[in-house]
Design a protein around this nucleic acid. Structure first.
Ligand SMILES: [Zn+2]
Ligand SMILES: [Zn+2]
Ligand SMILES: [Zn+2]
Ligand SMILES: [Zn+2]
Lengths: 158, 158
DNA sequence: GGAGATTAGGTTATAATGTTGCAATTCTAC
DNA sequence: GTAGAATTGCAACATTATAACCTAATCTCC
């Protein structure tokens, strides 16, 4: 488990390290972390809740960025391609990756009450893929797992 | 593995058994498998490819059913609630469940080339959930896994 | 079998999410 | 500098899903 969202932490560190890892990764890959891309990444990391593309638009607008859907979707696609964010399909939303750089399946727990998401470092997902490949002859290229339920905090307050 | 989509089979059997299991399940639960609900189930089972809600509308229209979005979404919600179909979030599409009745996570392999989907019977998904519960203190209520790649047939023809 | 409750369906409009196409600009490499 | 590539601006559009409100069918209980 790379991080634990449910432990108190200085969240500025999360944001700052996300940005510096992004910068390093872009350097390494010859990609450009343009202002709008960096700002989208920061906004995605504003908290640990998956954020919708359309939620980002007004925030970008406030700051003088162009804010039409293609702008934010292009930035998100760029970040997805580099593995800097994941998409939570069941929510149509995006969240920062806690360990970009290393290729890995998207695997998250999402609290249905508070909406916070915790990335999971689940080797079992790869086991599922290998098993499907062995038993069915398929070739797995991408994988995602999404768990939904109640986080510790929301269990306590219920 | 409850079924193997990649093996030749008489698909009418798939459809017929899906409908009769649905009928039994509805009986058991005191739910009503109305004409539009049954027809939506049959259409979802028309093949092994996840189908979008809006793809169903014209087909229902042809057959004289009412065909406005709420009609098909209501039918799909009903079928989802009973566990007769699953939703493939990454495709915004729906597919018949191969073993309704027993509560289980949604776990599929989907071919990016032909679009066919194979439901997987993956105990490892539950392992991920239990591990998350043990390590993070979360309570998992729902889970879904989606694998994407190439099916055996599409690998062969490439 | 009829009154009242419940469930299902019809209809219209609208919200939310995501894409296409093309022109203008900026960056990179030679 | 200049050609080619990548990025952005912009307008329109496509797709997916839901809200709101009402009518019709079905069930329950007497
Ligand atoms: Zn944080
Ligand atoms: Zn990640
Ligand atoms: Zn079949
Ligand atoms: Zn199933």
């Amino acid at each position: 488990m790379t991080q634990n969202v449910y432990k108190a932490h200085d969240h500025h560190v999360c944001i700052d390290s996300a940005v510096s890892r992004a910068r390093a990764l872009c350097e390494e890959q010859g990609a450009r972390l343009t202002p709008v891309r960096q700002r989208v990444l920061e906004l995605v990391w504003a908290n640990h809740k998956p954020v919708g593309a359309y939620d980002l638009l007004p925030k970008l607008a406030e700051e003088g960025f162009n804010s039409a859907p293609p702008t934010v979707y292009r930035a998100l696609d760029f970040l997805l391609d580099l593995g800097l964010v994941h998409r939570i399909s069941s929510l149509n939303a995006f969240i920062g990756c806690t360990h970009p750089g290393e290729a890995h399946p998207s695997c998250f727990f999402v609290c249905r009450e508070c909406g916070e998401a915790q990335e999971l470092d689940a080797e079992q997902v790869n086991t599922i893929a290998r098993q499907a490949e062995a038993m069915l002859g398929v070739k797995v290229e991408q994988q995602m797992t999404e768990l939904m339920g109640l986080c510790p905090r929301c269990q306590a307050s219920a």
